Simulated scan of single mutants.
Amino acid sequence: MARPPDADSAETYDRILQAAVDEIRTASPPTAISMRQVAERAEVSLGTLQYYFPKKDTLLEACLDEYHQRMKALGARLITEALSAKPPRTGRALIEPPIRAFYRFVREEPSLLQLRLITNTVSGELPAHRRMPMLGSLIGSAAKVLAEHVGIEAEDIPLTVQAVSLALTRFALMSDEERGVLTGTTDDTRFEEYLVAMSMRMLGLPA
């Protein structure tokens, strides 16, 4: 496709991406966004949108790439904070900050989280370009930080971190109705406290 006259590289790309994320936040399911509506929101022609993103799947994947970059940046910041803490963090002081931070992160973007789950379910796995950054780099780095401080075998730590992340995901997507049935409250504090205690037990630490 020839370059449309209103295609001006990075600025247009970013504007389209933000418009797509905004559409995802209001669509149900998040895969139901319209390319034409994204173009209108971004104030570009449909041809310009398709110049950058020929198919809707390409656009959705770009939105997820941006989401995962933010998640990876959060993980890197939390790992750096844990490694540089004086005195060194142990027990609850080590586990609680990342659990609360990641739960709040996924809780704030339910539509992008749903999109992530839908695409992973359809393909059956993380896309190859996200596999090492998320499973290898992020979870692997977290496992190294935890290795000297938890009560489970080192080879079990990455699997435990993955299991905790799945629990965070499910809790983040619970409706208020589900929360009320389970606990009688919709207060996020109750769920954060439970996730911290659950994570510590799974890692072999006293809750």
Rank of each mutant, 00 (worst) to 15 (best):
V21Y: 00
T31Q: 14
S34D: 12
M35W: 08
Q37L: 14
V38F: 05
V38Y: 05
A39M: 12
E40F: 06
E40C: 08
E40T: 12
R41P: 12
R41Q: 11
A42W: 05
S45N: 10
S45M: 10
S45E: 10
G47K: 13
Q50P: 14
Y51G: 15
Y52R: 14
Y52A: 14
F53Q: 13
F53I: 10
F53C: 13
F53W: 10
D57K: 15
D57M: 13
T58V: 15
T58A: 15
L59V: 08
L60E: 13
A62Y: 01
L64H: 03
D65N: 10
E66M: 03
Y67D: 03
H68M: 10
Q69L: 11
Q69K: 13
Q69I: 06
R70I: 01
M71R: 12
M71F: 11
M71L: 14
G75K: 01
G75E: 00
G75A: 00
A76E: 15
T80K: 15
T80G: 13
T80M: 12
E81Q: 03
L83Y: 03
L83G: 08
S84R: 03
K86L: 04
P87V: 01
P87R: 00
P88F: 00
T90C: 07
R92C: 09
R92H: 09
A93C: 06
L94N: 06
L94A: 07
E96Y: 04
P97G: 01
P97V: 00
I99L: 05
R100E: 12
F102Y: 07
F102Q: 04
Y103S: 05
Y103D: 07
Y103H: 07
R104N: 11
R104D: 12
V106I: 03
R107K: 13
E108H: 08
L113Y: 02
L113G: 06
L115G: 09
R116D: 11
L117W: 04
I118P: 12
T119P: 06
T119N: 11
E125K: 14
E125R: 15
L126S: 03
P127D: 01
H129K: 06
R130E: 09
M132H: 12
P133V: 01
M134P: 06
L135A: 12
G136K: 05
S137V: 13
S137C: 09
G140F: 02
G140C: 05
S141I: 04
S141W: 04
S141E: 14
S141T: 09
A142N: 03
A143P: 09
A143F: 02
A143T: 04
V145C: 04
L146I: 01
A147L: 07
A147N: 12
H149F: 06
V150W: 02
G151I: 02
